[in-house]
């Protein structure tokens, strides 16, 4: 596997792991780092040995946000031509489940990266915030959209306007953190969760993600039409036959992702 400048990667037990690796800079995200993350996610998405993607950050923070030095002198035309947020659009197209394991600061772009995950496991003491407003700007990689869809307009406005630090317990009570675990066990628990998903039939997992995501963008009627097509589609899979036969025969199914 090729070497990356700002991330570390490895695949084990059907789990494709991506670790942000700028611990001294609290994993501040630069453009190259995002490119690397997206590149690896896309390769994992095509890799049969990967069923679940696990994204985490090395050191005491998941990510303290974007690398400010890199953008302080940008102008609108340069940003338009650079089109850096296109990489973030590609993140939304990943079909396999993405588990985020976060600790410490989850700020700005780091928060947006966390919100791009499907499931978030967070360490006790993790703090989420959009501090962009204090620099005279605003979130640009989906923060105002994703957070609003998760917690509603009223809270999203308060949090993004005020740059308030949201404690992990509050994050969980508002539904964007699935589980809170002790910091020492973050990796172990996130891997346990990833493994549990990796043991399920991959095609069903994939089409569940596809359908649930449609609930965000579609009307209920359209979403339900979409859901049933995916439901029908799974009946053409071997895993559906295996799953139902195993159920009838009272044995454990063996899923192959076919």
């Amino acid at each position: 596997m090729r070497e990356y400048a700002f991330i570390e990667t490895k695949v084990e037990d059907y789990i494709g792991i991506i670790e942000l690796n700028r611990p001294k800079q609290l994993n501040a995200l630069n453009r190259q780092m995002i490119k690397e993350i997206v590149q690896v996610m896309e390769s994992y998405d095509q890799d049969d040995t990967v069923r679940v993607i696990l994204l985490k950050g090395k050191g005491r923070a998941f990510s303290a946000g974007a690398d400010i030095d890199e953008m302080s002198n940008d102008d609108p035309i340069r940003l338009e031509l650079l089109n850096q947020f296109q990489d973030w659009d590609r993140l939304s197209l990943i079909k396999k489940p993405i588990i985020g394991a976060v600790q410490g600061f989850v700020l700005g772009g780091g928060f947006e990266l966390a919100l791009s995950c499907d499931v978030l496991i967070a360490a006790e003491g993790a703090e989420f915030s959009f501090p962009e407003v204090n620099l005279g700007v605003m979130p640009g990689a989906g923060g105002t959209q994703r957070l609003t869809k998760l917690v509603g307009r009223t809270l999203a406005l308060e949090w993004i306007w005020s740059a308030k630090r949201i404690q992990v317990e509050e994050a969980q009570s508002h539904g964007f953190v699935n589980r809170i675990v002790s910091g020492e066990l973050l990796e172990e628990e996130a891997l346990k969760f990833a493994k549990m998903i990796a043991e399920k039939p991959p095609l069903a997992i994939r089409l569940i993600k596809d359908s649930v995501n449609k609930a965000i963008d579609y009307s209920l009627y359209e979403g339900m039409q979409y859901e049933r097509k995916n439901f029908y589609l799974l009946f053409s899979s071997e895993d559906q036959k295996e799953g139902m036969n195993a159920f009838v025969e009272k044995r454990k199914p063996k899923f192959q992702g076919k």
Partner: peptide, 8 residues
């Protein structure tokens, strides 16, 4: 969880 951490 706590005992797991202590046990390590």
């Amino acid at each position: 969880e706590g005992q797991r951490i202590a046990g390590l």
